[in-house]
Design a protein around this nucleic acid. Sequence first.
RNA 1: UGUCCGAUGGUGUAAUGGUAACACAGCUGGUUUUGGUCCAGCCGUUCAAGGUUCGAAUCCUUGUCGGACAACCA
Length: 563
Amino acid sequence: MTNEANSDAIKEKESKNFIELIIDEHLKNGRFNKVHTRFPPEPNGYLHIGHAKSICLNFGLAAKYNGKCNLRFDDTNPSKEETEYVESIKEDVKWLGFQWDGEYYASDYFQQLYDWALQLIKDGKAYVCECSQETISQNRTTPTRNGVACEHRARSSEENLDLFIKMKEGEFADGSMVLRAKIDLNSPNMHMRDPIMYRIMRAHHHRTGDDWLIYPMYDYAHGESDSIEGITHSICTLEFEVHRPLYDWFVENIKIHAPQQIEFARLNINYTVMSKRKLLQLVTEKHVSGWDDPRMPTISGLRRRGYTPESIRVFADRVGVAKRENVIDMGLLEFCVREDLNKKADRRMAVLDPIKLIITNYPEGQVEMIEAINNPEDDTAGTRMIPFSRELYIERSDFMEEPFRKYHRMYVGNEVRFRWAYFVKCTGFKKDDNGEIIEIYGEYDPETKGGDSPDGRKVKGTIHWVSVEHAHEFEVRLYDRLFSVENPDDAEEGKTFLDYMNPESLKAITAFGEPSLEETENGYSCQFERIGYFIKDKDSTKEKAVFNRTVGLKDSWAKQQKQ
RNA sequence: UGUCCGAUGGUGUAAUGGUAACACAGCUGGUUUUGGUCCAGCCGUUCAAGGUUCGAAUCCUUGUCGGACAACCA
């Protein structure tokens, strides 16, 4: 594997997770002599942050043990799967920084799977059943009672073979019969009560077209697909734990390589939903703009929101891997992206809620270019020039008519630093007829150019500003969590998760930024100083740029005010 | 109800029979041309009861609580 992702795996972590301990044991006792994993999505939706955890795990394990990791699409149900999803999945995996070794599809194995089904029938281990769906379900009864065998269970191999071939040839209607494994109708594990292997379904498959009229069930196809690819460790989520005996039964009875399945607890994050069904519903019912809406926990949504691949990989590493149910605080994800962007993002100045300030002792018509450092955390990031003039926009919240205790921004009589420019003392303000403050006045000290005073006097506050005349006007989309409750899945009687959507998850406003913002391309990510991290969105046009808020800066001042 | 799985600070994850630790969150303070970053410190944890052992978060038993499964979905 190439993988920049590789490097994160190597540093950090001496302590091992339970999967690594199992692998170590396998390597030691000779069960396996290599590690080969796979990421096996069904192409029926876009990948989300939970998948990212699985991707990081599978590719990470392969990297750590010098093994391989495949990308395999489990495309056994043509009624739900589409090429669009295949493409988006590949893009997302690559974007996360991983390169798969083999690209496979369960549909590549349809012929082999069919041949093995024939073999199981000949061995008397599978039979064609004509019972209705309801009958099959009823005959399986409940876990506490024995199941009951239907008349078809006793058919001869010859008859089963004949029927199954005819199923394939299209002699029977959709849903009229299925192929079932003959295992154990009394098993306490319901998945072992003669599970269905094949169904008749006249549906167009995104890869095999109309070649097949019967399609294997996931439970029949999955284990063998892993086996065919020589997968040693099949990592999957907890809900497949009860399926493991079934997968083992298939590979044992077909007599092929047996992978070891290991289950881990899926990722949950508060204030969002993670099920594909619900995400699909948000998209199809247009509660969001699409799979890549920046509020979605999808990889494409996070990308558009301004998350970096590194931040997601680090997040996946920090949440760890275990078998117990977990809910991760959204704050951890936000911490990870701030941490990454802090080191990498340019600093820029933009005013989101402007009020005009006039520096009364600054010559009218004069413009000075001020040099500003691009990133104090990165010496190689260089500097840029910003125009300074008599009329500036500052943040409305950076002025107070009657300041409260410990407020050290603009108020009459107070001097603050205008970032990279001058010290400015507030001298007054103007209200309109409604009592609304519409203008602020100040005087600058020409001796303090660059933001330092030769006489050594200090100011407590530094604020950002934008020259009115040179301001670049653009749209800012302030995104917030999509849901207003920690666990939207836990809906009370008569409600659904949709009833808990946060009405304030998107606020679009007009902002003014320094001129350098104008030349940026879509995908350009920077910090608006003192506000947060923003990324230029693909909705930007020549007339109007759009910036999405990735995440706000940590704001201990706001926190203090609340108290 | 039956089988399987799980239980460590507020949230996650470690400790592999030998001093319960790390991250996030929270709280103090320091530095700072971002009330950001950074630095220092504080806070607080083994589900319960028995047993094995010199010694148990770890092994055993029982219980309690939580989750998964009972699709011609994956």
